[in-house]
Write a protein that binds this DNA or RNA. Structure first.
Lengths: 176, 176
DNA sequence: TTGATTGCAAAGCATTTGCATGCTA
DNA sequence: TAGCATGCAAATGCTTTGCAATCAA
């Protein structure tokens, strides 16, 4: 199930390069945090990553995880994402083509998708308004296929799984 | 320049109705906050609105503005929007058709736009993945037409206007 | 040796909550 | 009069910063 250690060779290289080019220093903490980030294919918060790191080195603090996540972002290995619950999630960025997200408000599942057609329409739209786009974010909230099947039961049997993404206000919120 | 007082009749009605239907109470504070919100055609934070309210009634506190903004959202008159700077902005919702945003990272300008084609592609995409969408958010960051003209000067003459939207981390951030 | 890095604690923000007081219905 | 609303202060949750001690280059 776990990926082979030899993977992520390029990613490590990029991280080191970025560190050197910026006059920064390689440390055991940064190495470990990067390793754990790389082998975790998921959207995680600094907090999430902190606990994973804790299991392997309890001496590492919150702060260092925050700072390293920022470093990884600067290096182009990570990307910040927000799903509307005012938390910052991180996902792999290097070698991961751009994509957007559908977020299930029932179970918190995040589905990545990409549509060339939508991208093109966006550029066209921006062009029409004289806007020079640098990046964008498209998020679609709703009910995923799995939850659509189980949903009718929720009336009598509330789901045990708590959604990863908890919307702050339910009614009328677009979380935009 | 200012709108006539007779405007927003329907909005006031909706607000009152919502208050009554929910067993809540009409108060002078709520009235004033609603009035100021309605007459301000802009994306504003609770903080922004608080200061506008302050000018007309310094006795009104932050908390009440927060709570009333949430009320207005529940009533369907306001809509929450986030532009990636971890603040919650509010915009008019009633009688305002759905739209998306382009956000200038130079001056903070927010441009509203709508594309039927993009909406349709999104639905098609969701359908393909068995996802039942309830709402979505598309934001495009970049440089607006005005800033594109002035930008070359920024190298020697830093702009005096501070952007309304300040991105937390500049490099690599997608603020997604 | 020098200056970047770490981890703790404390500070920052935006937002929410507890509670005594005030005020609608 | 009952109990929702208000505003203050304090609490919260996430994130950042100050700083003395530590460690990589």
């Amino acid at each position: 199930m776990d990926r082979k250690k030899e993977e992520f060779t390029k990613e490590r290289e990029i991280f080191l390069e970025h560190i050197q080019n910026s006059g920064l220093r390689r440390t055991a903490q940064r190495d470990l945090i990067m390793e754990i980030f790389l082998r975790t294919e998921d959207h995680l918060t600094s907090e999430d990553l902190y606990w994973l790191v804790q299991k392997e080195d309890p001496s590492i603090g919150h702060t260092t995880v925050y700072r390293t996540l920022k470093l990884l972002t600067d290096a182009g290995l990570a990307r910040e994402v927000r799903f509307g619950d005012n938390k910052t999630y991180y996902e792999h960025h290097y070698n991961h083509q751009h994509h957007d997200h559908m977020i299930c408000t029932e179970c918190g599942r995040v589905i990545e998708f990409f549509s060339e057609a939508i991208e093109q329409m966006q550029d066209k739209m921006a062009d029409k308004l004289g806007f020079r786009p640098t990046h964008h974010s498209l998020r679609i909230w709703g009910i995923c296929d799995v939850c659509q099947k189980t949903e009718p039961m929720l009336v009598t049997a509330p789901s045990g799984a708590q959604p990863k993404v908890r919307m702050r206000s339910v009614a009328g919120s677009q979380g935009n």
